[in-house]
Design a protein around this nucleic acid. Structure first.
Length: 956
DNA sequence: CGGGAACTTCA
DNA sequence: TTGAAGTTCCC
């Protein structure tokens, strides 16, 4: 190599680690031929070299080699050959000359005094080294104290990166200015001493294979690094300009062994180790190298005094810095969220959220949502839901938001999101803000409230303390209104007999309610209308204008009052057909007129069922009107600006008891709103289990469960995605055919989706339903069957579960059908099979066809298979039912040695099948399992075992 | 300096 | 074959 390897005292000992030296690892140069041949004087840098730790700013540090030093032999540890090249600096010379005073003329750096010095060799006499080692517990009076820890994170660089300068290992408190560095103080000691810094593993009191280097004139000088301290210098050692070189994998062992050897030699004060010691070191190193954490190191500080005879004696117990983590690694690097796909989500959770992140490990990452109060205490936390496969290439996470703790918040709630790495509890910083939005139900309720209460505040008549107990109708004097609301949930008193919400649900009793002419109900309405009348109401069109402008009355109550008046009048004049007809017309007009004028186009029916405080009487009275005038069409078509029918509103607002009445009045259960959601979609989304039941159980309501919303999902899909077993079960029970509907996003059907959720219960539920084959064979947009999807994305348990139910254990599903062939199959079967016209490609391919396909492909494979015959033989054995059964029987027989141990079990235990054997109760299970393992090691093992038992040729 | 990213190897 | 880890390159 080159002579540049020589250094003056400051680095003398380190010369052996020059990074361009030739050694196995490329870092060390234990046997560097160069060092042996060079003479100190050849080093052009010698003179100029300065102590790196001293920031290169110290004058007169380097001197020509001291002849005395040349006599010193041995490398710092055990490299006698290098000794001669170690160039003592002036300091060292002085030291060696016994001029201890001179030593103190060390360098000063920012007020900290320290002095670099060469590495000295332990002499054989130096036997007192072992501090906490070798069973010798030595008491030290001197104490090393870490005054400045190193930074927690630092990029370890490979040797190949060590060209220009990169950052150095700073102190934990380091800023741009001033910078700080790892620093130790020696206490309780008098006299000159040396403080050594070297790189250690974090789990073990053993050196690390990485190199702690100091940059010096194009060279990286490796650890250990020694600094001289003394009383005059305050016993402070500051280690400046260090870097960490990441030893390449292949050199880990060599480097570690070398370091360990060096340390041992140094400690023993001997030049050579016995072969036994070397052997032991080898083994130890092998063990350590195997699972050494390459992304975490720590600094080890030791203190020595140098005896007159040049031996080094430890004077304080070694101390270790905090761990230093490799900034570059996904295991220890910084966590950071770069971007969120959206800043908000529903309090209900389950919204898809994509996080772009810095490199993460999918097996070691969590997404935490949390909320803190003003004191910084966590008041709520939850974790987003995602699978390993949702972590995209270590840089993005597709997850589902967790539901917020309170699903009834009325305004947005700000929370935070952070990443957590469980292995070291590292968090991303800073946390990103995320806002939970109130559910639609609450929002629309609020909207309603604001529009229906706009008048109340101006009214000076809010005499009671009940002003907030009522939202409607405001036309009525406050007192009267309060009266209404107080009894909202039970109107039994008014009806003079028992009344339960169930009566609304039961069609017959509801009929009765509609037809009855309750005096109380009547009275209420009369009161209402009375007010309107005295206020001087007008006819339909002008009504709201008049009231709205003159009295600032609420639109809805105005219209309702008007309608009720007409209704009551019509009802009193029993046989007046003409009045009935005209009343009918008027009511209808009022109804549509109101909707046109109302905020968001909510109809009276919408309004009346969604009062913030449920107002049964009002609702029922309205229902009566609709019923009496036979305005089914009105109810049927009633949609607001969002496309919501009254049933949507009922589901959103959790007014389950209105569902049946509304259905009875003619509302369509399959109405889709602007976002294509049916009421049932909303019920599932909003978690309205009672609504769902009422819907499903409603007699005569023909629900279409195949309708998809604008996310492409049916209610069942939504339930599965949210892992709502009961809901899914109810939906499936209602209409089994709905399970085969593919969603319009990725073409997954219910089974695909359950597989993605890895939800075994759901999978079983779906598999238990009818038309199983269709589901099993249908392919999603990516062309995958549920089983294939499971193999790609789900856990073993799901895969096994599915494999069990596929008629051929999934072999046919394994077959990829090339597009062109698939098209042929589709077209050829299209003539007599209309079902194949499905949105999902190749959805209903017949099993036989797939089977054929598989066979064909397999035949091809066969010819290229160069594997031994045993596998083929076994495959033939398994392919025919009689032979399969025969083999099952044979394998169920006990072994010769042990009557309790069936043959199959023995084979399993001896092979790689062992870990699965708990799955099987007989050989049949194992054979089933093996059927699709053709080509696997397990398969081969099994085949060979059979051959050994003589079963292969026998059955063939 | 500090960092991104390309390239290579591993599992 | 593919995704991740490891290594190198270069702005």
């Amino acid at each position: 190599m080159n002579q540049q390897q020589f250094f003056d005292l400051d680095q003398g000992k380190n010369i052996s680690y020059i990074n361009d030296c030739s050694s196995t690892s490329g870092y060390s140069s234990a046997n560097s031929p160069i060092s042996m041949t060079q003479s100190p004087s050849h080093s052009p840098e010698t003179f100029a070299l300065q102590n790196e730790f001293a920031n290169l700013n110290l004058p007169a540090m380097s001197n020509s080699p001291s002849p005395q030093l040349q006599q010193l032999r041995g490398s710092p540890y055990q490299q006698p050959l290098i000794v001669n090249q170690l160039l003592p600096s002036g300091n060292l010379c002085m030291e060696i000359d016994g001029g201890s005073n001179n030593i103190l003329n060390g360098t000063t750096n920012f007020g900290n005094m320290y002095m670099p010095m060469d590495h000295f060799y332990a002499t054989p006499q130096n036997v007192g080294y072992a501090a906490n080692d070798g069973g010798v517990k030595q008491e030290y009076t001197a104490v090393l104290h870490i005054a400045e820890q190193p930074v927690e994170k630092f990029r370890f660089r490979y040797k190949s990166e060590m060209h220009g300068t990169h950052g150095s290992l700073n102190g934990i408190n380091s800023k741009r200015t001033p910078k700080t560095f790892p620093e130790v103080i020696l206490r309780n000691y008098n006299g000159p001493a040396v403080i050594r810094c070297s790189l250690f593993q974090t789990n073990l009191d053993s050196p690390h294979s990485h190199q702690l280097v100091v940059r010096k004139d194009e060279r990286d000088v490796c650890d250990p690094h020694d600094l001289r301290v003394s009383q005059e210098r305050g016993y402070v050692a500051q280690f400046i300009n260090m870097g960490i070189i990441h030893t390449a994998k292949k050199f880990i062992f060599d480097e570690l062994l070398k370091k360990k050897k060096d340390r041992l030699v140094f400690k023993m004060g001997r030049r050579e180790l016995s072969t036994k010691q070397v052997q032991e070191l080898h083994q130890e190193t092998e063990r350590e190298a195997k699972d050494m954490n390459l992304n975490q190191v720590r600094l080890c500080f030791e203190a020595f005094k140098i005896e007159d005879n040049q031996t080094w004696t430890p004077i304080a117990a070694p101390v270790y810095s905090n761990p230093i983590n490799n900034r570059k690694s996904a295991q220890t690097g910084e966590l950071r969220i770069t971007r969120l796909s959206k800043p908000t989500g529903s309090v209900m959770g389950n919204d898809e959220l994509i996080l772009l992140v810095e490199k993460v490990s999918k097996k070691n990452i969590k997404v935490r949502f949390f909320e803190e109060n003003d004191d910084g205490e966590t008041v709520w936390e939850a974790y987003a839901k995602f699978r390993e496969s949702d972590v995209h290439h270590q840089y993005a996470i597709v997850c589902q938001t967790p539901p917020y703790k309170d699903k009834d918040v009325e305004r947005e709630v700000g929370v935070s999101i952070e990443l957590i790495r469980p292995s070291d509890d590292e968090r991303s910083f800073p946390p990103l803000p995320f806002r939970y939005k109130p559910r639609d139900a609450i929002v629309s309720r609020k909207r309603r409230r604001t529009c229906s209460t706009l008048t109340s505040s101006s009214s000076g008549s809010s005499s009671g303390s009940l002003n907030n107990s009522v939202e409607l109708p405001k036309t009525v004097p406050q007192q009267g209104v309060a009266n209404v609301s107080q009894h909202d949930q039970t109107i039994s008193q008014e009806f003079g007999r028992e009344f339960h919400l169930e009566q609304l649900i039961n069609p017959e009793s509801f009929r009765k309610i509609l037809e009855q002419d309750s005096a109380e109900l009547e009275k209420l309405c009369v009161t209402d209308i009375g007010v309107l009348e005295t206020d001087g109401q007008q006819q339909s069109e002008s009504a709201d204008r008049t009231h709205g402008s003159r009295y600032n009355h609420n639109l809805t109550s105005t219209y309702l009052g008007e309608i009720f008046k007409i209704f009551d009048a019509a009802r009193r004049a029993v046989d007046n057909k003409e009045l009935y007809q005209s009343s009918c017309k008027k009511v209808e007009n009022l109804f549509t007129d109101h909707a046109q004028k109302n905020v968001n186009n909510d109809t009276l029916l919408h309004e009346v069922i969604s009062q913030r405080k449920d107002n049964l009487k009002l609702a029922i009275k309205t229902f009566q009107v609709i019923d009496y005038f036979k305005l089914r069409e009105l109810a049927h078509t009633a949609q607001n600006a969002d496309g919501d029918s009254c049933l949507h509103i009922a589901c959103q607002q959790d007014r389950e008891h209105y569902i049946r009445p509304l259905l009875g009045l003619g509302c369509s259960p399959n109405q889709q709103n602007r976002t294509d959601n049916t009421p049932l979609h909303l019920a599932v989304k909003e978690d309205r289990n009672n609504c769902i039941k009422l819907f499903l159980d409603a007699p005569g309501a023909k629900l279409d469960l195949s309708l998809t919303n604008d996310d492409g999902l049916t209610p069942l899909h939504m339930a599965i995605r949210q892992n709502k077993y009961d809901v899914a079960k109810n939906l499936i029970n209602y209409d089994r055919s709905s399970i085969n509907v593919a969603n319009k996003t990725d073409g997954n059907n219910a089974l695909h989706m359950a597989v993605l959720e890895q939800n075994v219960e759901l999978i079983v539920l779906i598999l238990d339903a009818e038309n199983r084959m269709d589901i099993l064979m249908s392919r999603n947009s990516a062309g995958l069957t549920p089983l294939q999807l499971a193999r790609a994305k789900a856990n073993d348990r799901c895969v096994r579960l599915l494999e069990e139910v596929y008629p051929d254990k999934g072999e046919c599903a394994m077959t990829w059908i090339p597009l062109n062939i698939k098209e042929e199959m589709d077209s050829s079967s299209a003539e007599d099979d209309e079902e194949s016209n499905s949105e999902v490609p190749a959805q209903s391919i017949k099993t036989e066809e797939i089977d054929m396909e598989f066979k064909t492909e397999y035949a091809d494979e066969d010819s290229t298979m160069d594997d031994s015959d045993v596998e083929k033989q076994l495959e033939q054995l398994l392919s025919s039912k009689p032979r399969f059964d025969k083999l099952v029987a044979q394998l169920n027989e006990p072994t010769a040695d042990n009557a309790n141990l069936p043959k199959w079990k023995e084979i399993a235990d001896k092979s790689d099948l062992k870990e699965f054997s708990w799955l099987w109760s007989s050989s049949e299970g194992m054979l089933n399992y093996l059927q699709h393992k053709l080509g696997d090691k397990q398969y081969k093992q099994f085949a060979l075992a059979l051959q050994e038992l003589g079963m292969l040729s026998a059955s063939n």
